[in-house]
Design a protein around this nucleic acid. Sequence first.
DNA 1: GCCAAAATGAAATATTTATTCTATATAAAG
DNA 2: CTTTATATAGAATAAATATTTCATTTTGGC
Lengths: 277, 277
Amino acid sequence: MAKKKNLKAQTYNELCDLLSDRFDRLSNQLKKISQFVLENPNDTALKTTANLAQQIGVQPSSLIRFAQALDYDGFSEVQAIFKERLVKQLPGASENYSERIQGLRKEQSGENKQSLNFLDKFIDINCSALEHLGKDISPNDLEKAIELIKAAESVYILGQRRSFPAAAYMYYGMSQLSIRSYLIDSVGGLLKEQISQLGKNDVLIAITFPKYSENSLSAIRIARERGATIISITDSPISPVVLESDICFYTDVATISGFRSFSATMCLAQTLVINLG
Amino acid sequence: MAKKKNLKAQTYNELCDLLSDRFDRLSNQLKKISQFVLENPNDTALKTTANLAQQIGVQPSSLIRFAQALDYDGFSEVQAIFKERLVKQLPGASENYSERIQGLRKEQSGENKQSLNFLDKFIDINCSALEHLGKDISPNDLEKAIELIKAAESVYILGQRRSFPAAAYMYYGMSQLSIRSYLIDSVGGLLKEQISQLGKNDVLIAITFPKYSENSLSAIRIARERGATIISITDSPISPVVLESDICFYTDVATISGFRSFSATMCLAQTLVINLG
DNA sequence: GCCAAAATGAAATATTTATTCTATATAAAG
DNA sequence: CTTTATATAGAATAAATATTTCATTTTGGC
């Protein structure tokens, strides 16, 4: 057998190494491409060969030659690596972050305990949920929500079951700020009665996640009928509460073993409260 | 002119709004697709129609129908929006997450709104609190706590004031797991009476932060006198509860404007609960 | 329970996109 | 200066991918 074939670089980092290695021996155009792809990894991941070629100022065929000079069959293979990088870098799989934690864990506990794995996973999930939060919350909505709450006569906070802790936090925070607020806690099964206190100068902050409790949904409907302003925190644009709400925030509820991450929701809750103060 | 043409949703947020609006009127398959794309925006951005269709469990043509139901000409237009979202999230080569977040924020809101700064700061604080958590929690303590809880006849959970949300979460989680658990909520001012239920085969999980409420402290003392096992979550080794506790976890409660980050505490709470399941 | 309308699946087609091929230009060696 | 090898552009082709069409199933109204 003539020669053992070089295994292609599979990850972004390997690709980087390969490039530093061969850069000097590449032709002018291929150097140009190298520089571009390293400086514009996102474009490289998402655009078509024709597009990229134009942007770089080379022919599409040069992109293929570039890939082949790096031992790939075609440019698509290179692009796949950039795509992978794009999602890996995203919250949740952020190489720095996860790797850092995992490395740390390994070194400090050789025993690899189950409970620690869960802790790590949770930290990871919560962190990525937080990162998403920053990106997905619309600045305008946040401002608007704060204005509405400030203008309200009273603020009612609704969160049943898993959403109750977040609701309880908001209630605590607002009380500290001497905002006239009420926690709808269903004590004594009096949810409907509690909701009926709401008037048209009041704001209802409703926190709901799947599976949306029928109690919460009907409470929101009642509040709406009574003319209250409704600010919701829920999981997605297709949650049943969205259409009933004046403003809606979506928080990422990544799940692990059927349980949901709460950090993003809590963080948003805190942000709202603090901006009132 | 026959009819004013609807302008297509151009951004991810607009697309979300559109989906909330029309979701109810979509057919089953189209609903399925809606859910998927909202839950898997990255896949939606990067994969081919055939791929996605298979993953969702529909025909490729349904994806096009989905796009058309949202006034687009084809699925490619939808995908373009998801692609845009994907890169908007990532300002260039990412350093660590806080820098990333800060960079992002600056660029997308020239107006530099106060509320956003708070959101960013919070995200940042919560993320580092989580990171610390991973480093600070002792594997042995975690294991031991889990064993103790598993062995307990009943679990009582105490958290007053700011600690109440975390306590409420643990109560919720344990109830889901059919663990015999009680939330000491002081309803009706009956804290002492609630605590007096504790016996020597029970575990008290006490969550306390400065300034440690006198109620909580005396509750812990009573529980101890009655021979219960005490697992605490508190802020530091010099917290007054440490000496009363069998196991003690410290969570980082970074503060901003006098308010405290809760993520680490919540995360630890979740980890404990899940390891019981 | 029947009919019309809507939704879906599956294959056919159109379009886009990647890759190869060929001619031309450029650089290096004799 | 010529020759040979290499690099590049641009067009041609192949492959992948999106979209349309049509047959079949399902749904909802009478």
